[in-house]
Computed example of a mutant assay.
Amino acid sequence: MSVTTELIVFGVISIALGGGLLYAGRHLYPRLDLTRDALSTVRLLTAVIAGVLLLMGVGLVAVGLVT
């Protein structure tokens, strides 16, 4: 496997993990027994982590396609 292919594969995996995290969080949040403030903090942290994964994945795919 070449470096370009590996970048694209890792990018797609990162995008899938970010999307999966958002999907799982959306179904898990209503079941959590947390206060309103704690739930908003958990949602914010999940969104930040998923955002980083998604942006990193898009960047890796873009670099893999350009290279």
Rank of each mutant, 00 (worst) to 15 (best):
S2F: 01
S2D: 14
V3S: 13
T4R: 15
T4G: 11
T5W: 02
T5G: 12
E6S: 13
F10T: 06
F10M: 10
G11S: 05
G11E: 06
G11P: 03
V12T: 09
V12G: 02
V12Y: 01
S14L: 09
S14E: 05
I15M: 14
I15Q: 05
G18P: 02
G18E: 03
G19A: 08
G20D: 06
G20V: 04
G20Y: 03
L21I: 10
L21P: 00
L22R: 04
Y23C: 05
Y23Q: 07
Y23S: 09
A24L: 12
R26D: 14
H27R: 15
L28M: 13
L28G: 01
P30A: 07
P30S: 06
L32W: 06
L32M: 15
L32T: 08
D33M: 06
D33E: 13
D33S: 10
L34M: 14
L34P: 04
T35E: 12
T35L: 04
A38Y: 07
S40P: 01
R43I: 03
R43L: 07
L44H: 06
L45P: 01
T46P: 00
T46E: 11
T46L: 14
T46C: 04
A47N: 13
V48W: 02
G51M: 06
L53T: 01
L54T: 06
L55C: 11
M56Q: 12
V58F: 07
G59V: 10
G59Q: 09
G59A: 15
G59R: 09
L60I: 00
L60D: 02
V61M: 14
A62L: 14
A62D: 10
A62H: 05
V63R: 09
V63H: 01
T67I: 08
T67L: 13
